[in-house]
């Protein structure tokens, strides 16, 4: 069963939850072959009831200790622009749609999403364009994301503290 996982991390993003679980979005997801929608709603006020109407089953939860399992079992991830969520998803090698929260102060999250989008690693949109994006996106054009190199940081630190 092809499934979509939506994650808002530790924040709340009710606009995203409302949009992605709207009848219009569910219809598009169904038309693209997805049969299940799992929502991680965080601190949001909106937590849709589980339902299996008409062809897309909807599940929702607030937090889990680890989202790794949900990311692994998803065929598509829709995420807020938080660095943790984006990086974890890309490392699982899952296609990612990043939805920008325009209500956040200074909206610095836009920087990473825009850069990842510019480099061709993610699809990027906001709540008002999400449904349209889900309809028209071509996931086959997304580029894989090479892992970061924390070992370079370890080498640097060893040097500056005098271990080397």
């Amino acid at each position: 069963m092809k499934s979509v996982f939506v994650t808002v991390g530790t924040t709340s993003f009710d606009d995203l939850i409302a949009t992605v679980s709207s009848p219009a979005a569910l219809q598009v997801l169904q038309s693209r072959g997805y049969q299940k929608l799992v929502l991680q709603v965080g601190r949001g006020e909106l937590k849709p009831e589980p339902r299996s109407s008409p062809a897309v089953a909807v599940e929702a939860f607030r937090f889990k200790d680890s989202l790794a399992e949900d990311l692994r079992s998803a065929d598509l991830v829709i995420s807020h622009a938080g660095a943790g969520s984006c990086l974890e998803t890309l490392e699982e090698g899952k296609p990612l749609v990043v939805v920008i929260n325009e209500k956040l102060m200074n909206n610095h999250q836009l920087e990473l999403a825009k850069q990842l989008h510019r480099d061709g690693h993610v699809v990027c949109c906001n709540c008002s364009t999400l449904v349209e994006t889900l309809q028209t996106m071509d996931l086959t054009t997304l580029k894989p994301f090479p892992p970061g190199q924390p070992e370079k940081f370890a080498l640097f630190l060893d040097k500056v503290v005098g271990f080397q």
Binding site: G9, T10, T11, G82, A83, G84, S85, L87, E88, G148, P150, F153
Partner: peptide, 11 residues
């Protein structure tokens, strides 16, 4: 919270 901790644990 969230991303900051994920990143620092990677480091």
């Amino acid at each position: 919270s969230g991303g900051h901790t994920t990143e620092i644990l990677r480091l």
